[in-house]
Design a protein around this nucleic acid. Structure first.
Lengths: 185, 185
DNA sequence: GTCTATAAAAAGATAGAC
DNA sequence: GTCTATCTTTTTATAGAC
């Protein structure tokens, strides 16, 4: 069995318990693998598991977010496609964001650089899309930040309220919201 | 020394390391108290420390957020005052939110009810303020949710970017944003 | 109230059989 | 590749002296 097969399970565990809360015992139980087997796949232990999951998510991000933003169609259409992907990956708001998870707790020191890069890349790409449609550079960057703030904030609130409604509402409104001066002129 | 004296230090530790990452060793080092002394103040261990911190934050929230929202002045002025308090408590975006911290990790199971109540209370109070100024009930609730989403999302983004600028920008824009149809008519 | 010392439990990690 | 067994380290918790 290839170690990639365990990524969905690992992702689930880390999102559920966080970096510090995801103990090897829990991971062992969830994957059905003994601790020794886990070290066979991931010689450097938990950190390597997180790294593997992050690499997977980065690839997913490249293929499903960046690709869509760089693709064909109007700005509005591209942002809508992005939002659909976002809804998918967070399972309609049921799942927290791995980036946020890693920023809370002692995993922060280890993985901050990767999370930082991913967030900046995302912001830059949204801003680029808005700019190509004539939006001022500074405004475009702020709008892109606003988009990520809305996504991350909605995911947090939804976790706290135990109700995904606000997340789905925000995702529905986001495309119009972000390119408002472009569409409304 | 009363145990209340250690609350700021405990708050700092939990915000920095999260529930699972905040070990007794770290807490011992940060407070300058031996482990046995910690159990003298908090017989039930870490959970009681978190509970004490949460009680403190709840009181702060009552006195500095709810009080302001229920106070004198225009809607815009009250929301502005709220935002100033928010900037204070999160130290201009440097500090993460204790609610978000507790929602990520295994502390979630223990403290979710308290976090949930606090978030709902906050939303309800903002919505109430907007309603008294004639805003439709459903819209007011969505706007209140939007406010918390903006705050929480900005705090996450700022942690990821290591730059508090977006948080301060969001806080500056928030009052106008939230009561826009009231002010713009 | 604070400490030292220590115990008990859990987590992280490895050796070696199959 | 997976396991049992074991080991080390860390974490949690307590007893008892001062």
């Amino acid at each position: 069995m290839a170690k990639e097969a365990y990524i969905p399970c690992l992702l689930d565990i880390f999102r559920r318990y966080g970096y510090d809360g995801a103990t090897l015992s829990k991971i062992s139980q969830a994957t059905g693998l003994g601790k020794a087997s886990l070290y066979h796949y991931f010689p450097h232990g938990k950190d390597e598991m997180v790294s593997t999951v992050l690499d997977f998510l980065e690839k997913w991000f490249q293929q499903n977010i960046l690709e869509v933003l760089r693709g064909q169609g109007t700005v509005l259409s591209r942002l809508s496609q992005m939002c659909e992907q976002v809804i998918q990956v967070y399972e309609g708001g049921e799942q927290p964001c791995m980036c946020a998870i890693l920023l809370m707790g002692s995993g922060r020191d280890i993985f901050h650089a990767k999370v930082n890069l991913l967030l900046r890349t995302w912001i830059d790409e949204i801003a680029r899309v808005l700019q190509t449609e004539g939006l001022d550079q500074a405004i475009a960057k702020e709008r892109a930040e606003d988009a990520l703030i809305a996504i991350q904030g909605a995911l947090i609130l939804v976790q706290g309220l135990n109700d995904t409604t606000p997340f789905l509402r925000i995702m529905k409104q986001l495309p119009q919201q972000i390119c408002r001066s472009i569409c409304n002129i």
